[in-house]
Simulated scan of single mutants.
Amino acid sequence: MDISKHIECLSQWPNHLAPGLPTIGALLLLATGGMVVGCKIWSFLRVILSLFVFPGKPLHSFGPPGSWAIVTGASDGLGKEFALQLARAKFNIVLVSRTESKLIALGEEITKQFPKVQTKTLAMDFSQNADEDYAALNELTSDLDVSILINNVGQSHSIPVPFAQTPASEMSNIITINCTGTLRVTQLFVPGMIQRRRGLILTMGSFGGLLPTPLLATYSGSKAFLQQWSTSLGSELAPHGIEVELVHAYLITSAMSKIRRASASIPTPRAFVRAVLSKIGRSGGSTAYAYSSSPYWSHGIMAWFLTSVMTPMNKIVISQNKSMHESIRKRALRKAEREAQKKST
């Protein structure tokens, strides 16, 4: 028997049996491609359902009315709006930020709008990383039932800047405020939440931490750190009934973004915070990391697209991000030059 002829015959079997019939390899490729496309479609459907259909966990599942919420960076923008909306939900509020006069004014505003809600304030400069400030916060809250912690305090670069030109003080402040401050505050309140077996720790992230952001390198790195920390912390605390969530945000009208006009992709603090608090526990468009969320509808769709669709073209995304911030830097430098000229005349 000529074995070689049998082998040759078998190798030609599919086409000999039925010309035009796909080979097994082609079928496997087709099936794999179909599975990939199907997974992407299913992923997008989950995002749509999370953003527009399914509700989040109710706030009072983390603590009863009259328990306390801590809000850092509370005097302006998102922090102020978190405080107002949590007060509306009947939580008492501890307001922590740098400027005492703004904290007092916000406390009075909350008391006027919600007479049954109590407030406490602490003026604290997170960039100083002073032990006495954290001791004061611990003493102020030692006998309180703290159900919710909003880690909102943060700092970005004054304008987009190449890393090599970043002022040392700005670099230090970003890391100290965004990273060290967030960790130290959280560590004050985790033990009590573990003891009560309930609580919410919500930390403000950024698209700058979701994707590398040239010309905001230090800020981007600090937010990426918070992403990994929050995901790790979420896994640690889940068995204790504590919800941990890092919120990815694109641009919002605020003093930090220097944007005043809202649009479909740039919400007001009120609209953004409303979305966050109504979607606790839902991932929105943040499908890349556990214990993360991008709950505002346009931000969620963008987050999904950038992490699920554009990942193979990551260099393109980074290049576009770089070009955008180079343009912002040029405009900021021209504005600073005009203002300097006005002062000199």
Rank of each mutant, 00 (worst) to 15 (best):
N321K: 11
G209P: 03
A288R: 13
Q165M: 14
S11M: 14
A164T: 07
L45S: 11
G192H: 08
V153L: 07
L306P: 03
S101W: 04
S101R: 06
I280F: 01
P65D: 08
I175N: 03
R197N: 12
M310L: 15
R98F: 11
P162R: 04
S50G: 12
S294M: 04
A238S: 13
Q165A: 15
V37S: 11
S142V: 10
L202W: 04
Q113H: 12
R331K: 14
C39R: 13
V153D: 05
G66V: 05
S286A: 14
Q128F: 06
T345P: 09
I177K: 01
V247T: 10
K330S: 13
T141H: 00
P65C: 10
W297T: 01
R196W: 09
L95S: 01
S97G: 11
H248W: 14
P212Q: 08
K330H: 13
L45A: 13
F91L: 06
R196C: 03
W42S: 10
L306N: 06
S344I: 13
S254W: 06
G192D: 09
S147T: 06
E245Y: 01
G38W: 12
A288D: 15
T307N: 07
E139Y: 06
L277V: 07
A136I: 02
V146A: 01
W13T: 05
N129M: 09
Q165G: 08
W297K: 02
I24C: 14
Q155E: 14
A290W: 10
T345M: 14
F82K: 00
H248R: 02
S97R: 02
G66N: 07
G107W: 05
S327C: 10
S101F: 08
S127G: 05
I266F: 05
A332V: 04
W13I: 04
L246S: 06
A123G: 09
F305R: 01
F114S: 03
T72F: 08
L200Y: 00
H325Q: 10
S50M: 05
I148H: 00
T287E: 15
A275R: 04
A303G: 08
S222F: 00
L202R: 00
L251Q: 11
S43H: 07
L333C: 04
T311G: 10
F82Q: 03
L17V: 10
A26D: 15
L202A: 05
S292H: 13
I41P: 03
L237T: 07
P167T: 08
A87W: 00
S169M: 12
A255T: 14
E100C: 05
P19M: 11
Q320H: 13
I110Q: 02
W68V: 00
I7S: 10
P160V: 04
I318Y: 13
A275W: 06
A262M: 08
N321W: 15
I93G: 00
F207N: 04
G284M: 02
G154M: 05
Q227K: 07
I316L: 15
S235V: 09
L237F: 15
C179I: 15
V273L: 05
L137H: 01
T203W: 10
Q341M: 11
R331I: 13
A290V: 09
P64R: 09
K120E: 11
L51D: 01
F305A: 11
I93L: 08
L202Y: 02
S323F: 12
S263R: 02
T218D: 10
A336S: 15
V94C: 08
V190G: 03
I148F: 00
M35P: 03
E337M: 07
P162V: 10
M35Y: 15
S327E: 13
G234H: 07
A105Y: 02
P267R: 01
A89V: 02
